[in-house]
Design a protein around this nucleic acid. Structure first.
Lengths: 400, 400
DNA sequence: TATAGTATTGAATCCGAGC
DNA sequence: CGCTCGGATTCAATACTAT
């Protein structure tokens, strides 16, 4: 059974797993989109709550049957993570209360991400929910410490890595098989709100399977609630992310899926696990935020769109002239005015800007700026801070 | 009824509100902490599921009765926001489905915040949930736009895109292969996951209202789902944050609370026109909270100390001349320059200011300002925003 | 009025150019 | 050759349009 992907309904496969042997269960059940559609269309016709309940009840009954079976195979120290979205999360959790008990609820994990879309009639859905329940109060829990802000430095979240005798990269453990955490500072204990980027459409990690989850999400779950050589079960394994993560973290896995294609895909992935070389994950979100505080605070006073990924332009003004943009740059600490102006000019011309505005924050230390060094395309204006300083200075001079 | 805080059970007060007149409801019902604790201790001894259900059912029945009454007073375009935490959110949402209908669900808003706590054998709870339901599908919704992600590149904001013959999305070009610009964009629609700082725990202790919510949270909700002069109802208004936010945003309010102290506190907070009840606010950065956002953001760029409780002066500059202060005021929306200048002059003279600086944010609508109306003691300088607008205008004129 | 097809869009990647 | 910078691309969730 172990370290295999099984094809079939998990209800059948689960009965072949010895009771009390699984240490961690993660499940990402199907959402029954068609059913919900019919539910919706039926609702639009009848608008009767009981009708909806009937349909939702079917879905919940299907899940409940499988969760009861899952509970059987769970060890005494085991934890279960149920992944759902806003459509049915509340009914799922009521059912989980029934199966595991209200007091066995541990956490409502929010997986928050940013996503593309153009929703206009509603708030953009940008999170999914993972319910965490235990079988008993003797569950495994490894506290993970994070840096102050979420997803800034994933290396600190992850454990230390080393090479084993076969040359494979594995997570380091001490003699007692306890994980070794990375770094001397423990940091802040992980909260129940996880800012993990959505698997990007361009990511190599993508397999083409629709509901594929990021490896980091599963790695975090597995680290949190299992130890090396523990058995991790995913009864709806889909593209196999859970099993890949378990392998990478030296856990053993049992994967199950009803789709033959999913089983094939999972098997292939475990043989050749590809981890996306995501610079966002590697360097953290903060590394993309290039604008210094003093620049950002000036931009905050203006009707502009800040630009982080351009070294010459800090922002684009909300007003356009003849369809052409007005680009803005704020002088940096220690930056000579002419250097800032040339940066801005180069970048602004590429974007076909109609106006390029440089906000001067300070006088050059050596007073080397001559205005003939400033390109004529660039308009220089003073920051309020600078103007006030000038007023104070001129006041001092008139007084003396 | 309107613009008042009422004392009593909302079930009674609601019956006095005419049906279909309320445009927005926010409620932050009590969590029955004692009940839950007895529930929990009882559970620890008996661990009986039915016991818990009975108790939870009482709580839900209490809420359901009130939500049915709330639905009655809601206008056709109204929206309701129900604030809850992980303890009962699922049961509350099931009940909301029953009262408003599964299809009237709009969003599950996650309010995420960071806070300190000692790590137990658990993830640190750091979010609360707000369910958003409408009465009909003709609900009011004003999209709020936010900044683009730091990882977004400029070209996407600037360039027009289209689909080529293969259905791929590509950047549009004209016949000469030059890129076509897109014109101004609005930004990213607000998502359902809100990262808003929690109130200072010390402030909680002082007020004795542990559930006090940040103003920003309520302001966002009110902006999102109501228009000026609409009626905002909070049936469990506590310290009155909802009513304060409604007042600040020119909405009308109805507040209800069973606690006499809460009603008194709410009335006091609303009676104070600006957010200056220092006993309710943390010190330091929060002192900016008395000031409108547009004033606050400008002061943030300057080396100044913000001033509270002074209608003429917004801040005092860090530099002093001959031991005398330099006082600063930022022109308000819709405020005539001469009015602002006179305010500043009066207040500044009392403080023996050596310089009084008024930052002009906009031209007077009727161009009635003559500079001889500005007191000579006051120095007027333009905000960067205004200077840029002038540059754009003069550019337009030289072109034509 | 229900359904199918089309347009729009932002996040974060991949990848090429330049140093 | 390895790095950084920035331009191009993918794709799912929406709204919108046509049938």
């Amino acid at each position: 059974m172990i370290d295999q992907i099984h094809h079939g309904d998990c209800l059948d496969i689960l009965s072949q797993i010895p009771n009390g042997t699984v240490n961690l269960v993660y499940l990402d059940p199907p959402f029954f989109t068609q059913k919900k559609q019919t539910l919706k269309s039926r609702k639009l016709v009848t608008y009767e709550f009981d009708d909806k309940w009937d349909s939702m009840a079917d879905y919940i009954a299907y899940l409940k049957l499988r969760l009861i079976a899952i509970k059987e195979v769970m060890a005494d120290n085991a934890t279960v993570f149920v992944h759902c979205d806003r459509n049915a999360s509340h009914y799922i959790r009521v059912m989980l209360d029934e199966v595991f008990g209200y007091d066995r609820f541990l956490s409502e994990i929010i997986w928050a991400y940013r996503r593309w879309s153009n929703s206009r009639k509603n708030l953009l859905p940008a999170h999914q929910t993972i319910y965490m329940y235990s079988k008993s109060d003797r569950y495994t829990f490894n506290t993970i410490y994070t840096d102050y802000s979420a997803s800034t430095n994933v290396d600190q979240i992850l454990q230390r890595r080393e090479r084993n005798k076969h040359g494979k990269t594995v997570y380091a453990t001490d003699d007692d098989n306890n994980v070794i955490l990375n770094g001397p500072k423990k940091g802040v204990p992980l909260s129940d709100t996880w800012d993990i980027p959505y698997l990007n459409p361009k990511a190599k990690e993508r397999t083409g399977y629709p509901t594929q989850k990021p490896l980091l999400l599963l790695e975090r779950i597995i680290q949190l609630s299992s130890n090396p050589d523990n058995i991790v079960l995913d009864p709806f394994c889909g593209s196999g992310t859970t099993c890949v993560a378990a392998t990478l973290l030296n856990r053993r896995y049992i994967g199950i899926d009803t789709s033959h294609d999913a089983v094939e895909l999972s098997r292939a992935r475990i043989g050749n696990p590809i981890r996306s070389d995501s610079s966002l994950l590697k360097k953290g979100r903060a590394s993309y935020e290039n604008l210094p505080d003093e620049v950002q605070s000036i931009l905050n006073t203006l009707p502009v769109k800040p630009v982080q990924r351009n070294s010459g332009i800090d922002a684009i003004h909300d007003r356009f002239v003849d369809g052409r943009p007005i680009v803005i740059r704020v002088q940096r600490d220690g930056e000579r005015l002419e250097d800032g102006a040339n940066h801005l000019k180069q970048a602004g011309e590429k974007k076909n800007a109609i106006l390029m505005i440089l906000i001067r924050r300070h006088q050059d230390v050596q007073q080397t700026t001559f205005f003939n060094l400033i390109p004529p395309e660039v308009t220089v204006i003073d920051s309020i801070d600078g103007i006030i300083d000038d007023i104070i200075e001129s006041h001092l001079h008139t007084e003396s």
